[in-house]
Amino acid sequence: MEIAVCIKQVPDTAEVRINPETNTLIREGVPSIVNPFDENAVEEALRLREKHGGKVTIITMGPPQAIEALKQTIAMGADEVYLISDRAFAGSDTWATSYTLACAIKKLVAYDLILCGKQAIDGDTAQVGPGIAEWLSIPQVTFAVKIEVDGKKAKVERLLEEVNEIVEVPLPAVITVVKQINEPRIPSLKGMLKAKKAEIKTLSAQDVDADQTITGLKGSPTRVVKIFAPPVKGGGEIIEGSTDEVVSSLTQKLRERKII
């Protein structure tokens, strides 16, 4: 079974700072990690390989430093990894990114299954996985919390807000996973030694046969107009006193605000 997993390198913190002039992330001084949901996707691919045999190929699109993220997946046990990196990709939105990744997958993997995290923790769009499915014209299942592969089809349990939904999907397909699906393994020392020595193959737009009118800023129909931190919520008020005092004070306040 041939599995492709798409990953993204993201800043390792919720305290991301934004450059107010360019509206882009300030990445200096913030350590980078594999997007946590993508780590779950890698783990799930490794587990499926352990069960059904085959190969796990990891693909990321990003700047040269994304090599570190790929090495992390080698340490976990990935078979092959590719960095898709080209100046022509700069400024890609989710449309251009999913196109580029779809090109790379088509070129590099005889895929039975494509796994992604449900979204990246920096952009939170959750669009790239579904976008890849559209570019490749194959089915997609999002928010998977359980995947069972049986020959040419998969049974997938989706984690929705109120209920879980079980769907069956023919393969190949794109499946995006939530963090509840598994606990990513801690890399082994053997894996890390392999990762340290690994030479990472880097491919350009041309290498993956990407049409350069659809990649990068030029190929991106969306523009980020503004990024800003939401205003901080004010602190709550603690009412102290005896039970009777607290109750009457609270009801009075609620009445003043016309809540009751």
């Binding site: 390792d12 350590p31 990690i33 992390q72 340490a75 801690i186 890399p187 082994s188 020392l189 053997k190 894996g191 890390m192 030694l193």
Partner: peptide, 22 residues
């Protein structure tokens, strides 16, 4: 790794944490 192997450790069974989460 060499030192561990000398003491009969299987490297694939040794856990390694390099980032904060691990």
């Amino acid at each position: 790794a060499q030192m561990l192997e000398k003491h009969n450790v299987k490297l694939e069974e040794s856990w390694l944490g390099t980032n904060d989460k691990q």
